[in-house]
Structure formats: structure tokens, C-alpha cells
């Protein structure tokens, strides 16, 4: 069940570009919980929490947490098994 407040990976394209140095919405991520592979644009994104919480669209597993203090980003991507940069 998807929460109506939830956004998707398009909403954090700017933040991800800042962290990774290029557009990541077409990058292919693999969920470390259920193995689903798909474009980063399709992940579930919550921005209400302090920081950004990224979850798998299929199993709801936690993929990434991104926090920012002033100009420093902290990215915890423990739930991502793989992230394949766009070709």
C-alpha cells in the first residue's frame, strides 16, 4: 500500500546529482532485500522525515537514507545491493 504522501525518485534527482555527480534517475538499482531491479526514478521517496528516506517499491525495504547538514551530505545506502550508473 503506497502512502499518498510518498514521492518517487524523480523528486530527489537534484540531490542525487549533487551526491553522485550526474543524473541518477535512469540508473538501475537492485534492492538488497528482495532483489528487485529498476530505475532509481521508480523508488518510493519520503521527504517528511529529517532527511530523505528511500524505499523499495516492491517490498518496502529501506534502500537509502540521505541527510544533509549544511553542505555535507551523509548517504547511507546499506539496503541497495547494487547501483548501476546510467550508460
Amino acid at each position: 500500500m503506497i502512502d499518498n504522501q510518498a514521492l518517487d525518485g524523480n523528486a530527489i534527482a537534484g540531490t542525487l546529482a549533487e551526491v553522485f555527480g550526474g543524473d541518477m534517475t535512469t540508473a538501475i538499482g537492485t534492492c538488497g532485500h528482495c532483489g528487485t531491479r529498476g530505475p532509481v526514478a521508480e523508488v518510493v521517496v519520503y521527504r517528511r522525515a529529517p532527511g530523505v528516506v528511500v524505499r523499495c517499491r516492491v517490498c518496502d525495504g529501506l534502500l537509502m537514507v540521505i541527510t544533509q547538514v549544511r553542505d555535507v551530505f551523509c548517504v547511507d545506502a546499506l539496503g541497495l545491493a547494487e547501483l548501476q550508473a546510467p550508460a
Binding site: G9, N10, G14, D23, T25, T26, P39, A41
Partner: peptide, 9 residues
């Protein structure tokens, strides 16, 4: 303004 951003949509 920062952009353009996003290549998927």
C-alpha cells in the same frame, strides 16, 4: 534555480 534535472521523465 538549479537544473535542468532528471533524465527519466
Amino acid at each position: 534555480l538549479r537544473g535542468p534535472i532528471g533524465g527519466y521523465f
